[in-house]
Amino acid sequence: MNAVNPGRKLALAGQALLLILLYLFLYFPIFYIMYLSFVENTVWPFPPEYTLEHYINLLTLDNFHQGLVNSLIIGIGTGLLSTLFATMAAIGLLKYQSRWRGLLMIFYLAPLFVAHILIGISSLIFNKAILGLPGNLLSAIIANATYATAFAFLVIVAQLARYDWRLDDVAMVFGATPAKTFREVTLPNIWPAIFGGFFVGFILAFNNLEISFYNLGAIPTLPTIAWGTLRHGIKPELYALASIVNAFIFLILIILYFLLKMGFLKLDIKDR
């Protein structure tokens, strides 16, 4: 119901154009290497000579299986750990009004404002120099979890802010123990948020290079393999890898989107 005068229309059209340009900027590289992953002549792929060779090479690459398994372990481990931390933090923060609320919030979000490379090297130093442990998957998971928790926390807090905690009181009045209350009332209402938090944590850790690299040393993950390959000039296997990862991420995002559409998840916190 807003007046749309010519000037306003022009401004909106301009903004829409900027958005389209941004999408082009963001997606052209992604789709272009998807395309490259299927062609033989990758430097100037016109006309294309289609092949599946890069995918076969990728699958037979040294370390690939080991890297995939490690990445999955780190992704799932980080996802679980950060979701656990983030859920507890979010519930603690939202359910119990504390005067430290602001401070706690800043604390949980602090890793967002620290560069990954710093998280990577500091946990490397901490493990090796202080605890005397060599890098391993567990330390990589923990280091990844520090910042993944911050992201998961954001996602979960945004969702949980909409939950009416009086429902918990209702459950208790009708005889539910705190544990039962959580299982019967709280969890069914907030699981999409928790799932979203897990997804974010998983993806971030799965793809992370800088933190994992410093914690793992010689243990391969997909991003470290990719990094190693990229260092020796681009190999077409990388296009195949990037395409697989992208396809996987888009699939999950599409699933998430439909969850959102069907109302299982909400993004805005307007009607808190």
Binding site: P29, I30, Y32, I33, L36, F206, N207, N208, L209, E210, P223, A226, W227, L230, I234, L238, Y239, L241, A242, V245, N246, I249
Partner: peptide, 12 residues
């Protein structure tokens, strides 16, 4: 997508 794969794409 992660930094490394996006940089790969950007290089192209």
């Amino acid at each position: 997508t992660g930094i490394i794969l996006r940089v790969t794409a950007l290089q192209q």
